[in-house]
Amino acid sequence: MDATELARGLFQVLETGDPELAAEVIGPGFRNREAAVSPPACSTPGPAGVLASGVWMRSAFSDLRFPVLATAVGHDQVWIRLRMQGRHTGPFVRFRDGALDQAVPPTGREIDFEQIHVLSLADGKVVRHEAVRDDVAMLGQLGVFPPAPATALRMAAWRISGRARRAAERITAESADAASLSRI
Rank of each mutant, 00 (worst) to 15 (best):
R65I: 06
T172V: 04
G162Y: 01
M155R: 10
A60S: 15
V78T: 04
F61C: 07
M57E: 09
R33N: 07
L142A: 07
I160Q: 13
L51P: 02
D97H: 01
A122K: 04
G143W: 07
A7S: 03
V118R: 13
A22F: 06
R154H: 14
A7P: 05
R165L: 11
A122D: 07
V136A: 14
E174M: 10
D134T: 00
A52M: 05
L10Y: 13
R163Q: 14
E174G: 04
A48I: 06
W158S: 10
A131Q: 12
V104W: 09
T4C: 07
R166I: 02
I160M: 14
E130K: 08
P47N: 09
D112C: 12
A173C: 02
R163W: 12
T44R: 05
L181T: 03
P28T: 05
P147T: 09
P39I: 03
G162L: 04
L121Q: 08
G17E: 06
D177Y: 08
M155Q: 13
G74S: 15
S120D: 14
A36I: 01
R96H: 12
F61Y: 11
M84Q: 12
A168H: 01
S43C: 10
A178T: 01
R65Q: 11
S38K: 03
A23R: 12
A131M: 12
E114K: 10
V104N: 09
P67V: 08
Q141L: 13
D63C: 00
I116C: 11
A176I: 03
D135R: 11
H88R: 13
A23K: 05
V144A: 06
T89W: 00
T71K: 05
R83Q: 08
R133M: 14
A36M: 02
V126L: 02
A152Y: 11
A157N: 01
Q12N: 11
E24T: 04
D97S: 00
L14E: 09
L69D: 15
T107H: 13
A41R: 04
E174I: 02
P106E: 10
S120Q: 14
F66M: 00
S43F: 10
D123A: 11
D112F: 12
S120L: 15
V55T: 04
A168K: 03
L82A: 10
A150Y: 03
A99D: 07
A7W: 05
I160E: 11
